[in-house]
Amino acid sequence: MKQFPIKKIVVYLLLSLGAITMVFPYVWMILSSFKTPAEVATTPPTWWPSSFAFTNFVYAFHTAPFGQYFINSLIVTSCVVLLTLTTTILAAFAFSRLKFPGRDILFTGLLALMMVPFEMMIITNYATISKLHLINTIPGLIIPFTSSIFYTYVLRNFFLSIPDSLYWSARIDGASNWQYLWKVMVPIAKPSIITITLLNAILSWNSFLWPLLIANTNSARTLPIGLYAFITEGGVRYERLMAAATIVVIPMIILFLLARKHIISGVAKGGLKG
């Protein structure tokens, strides 16, 4: 199949142009994070920093506890992911495998509830967390996010695709519902579960509005909130701000490079949903 190369050239040219537009903010962020104050404040801009010194990173870590923020983010995300996964697996099993009165009505009701934007729930949830004395604590960032109707819906659909005969075989082999769930269903649903875990981790890591309300002390701040606080504390020194932003962005970039295919296919199948 011979093709006029001009077509290919146009395709690659447009693609590269788009790619540059998409990654430029990151490139510019990282490059700026290595610059000296003088290099930042020049017209025309300096493209390449004179040396890749970590001065700005050191400053960021000294001024604000980014290490602490990182650990907070890690704790919050791991807990949210693990707890959500547990509740999701158990609930998806009940909705797909168990027969009980009111199942379908309950499930329909949950789907209706799924349509309500989270922003609407913030008001009451803040009051609830406040009543539980969990403002400015890590648990306050975690417990409202332990149940996800959306992921339960996704996993239930996957569970439903596992043939009944497998379930009955396991039962005849002597397995209880509980054993069947963990020894057969969950291993089979591994790809689906990985996808849910990744998407949920991304959402939780980058979550902003809720921790902005809840976490106002360094001991509870997650990376995005810590960064946001740094804007005011660190002053408008862009080389420092960019260093801080880089610190926040790097873990997710690494995760994306490692699990790109899973993340992309997960988004393509289910879409991101809070």
Binding site: P163, S165, L166, S169, A170, V184, I188
Partner: peptide, 8 residues
């Protein structure tokens, strides 16, 4: 009929 072997 479909043997229902555990695929994993």
């Amino acid at each position: 009929q479909n043997y229902a072997l555990y695929p994993h």
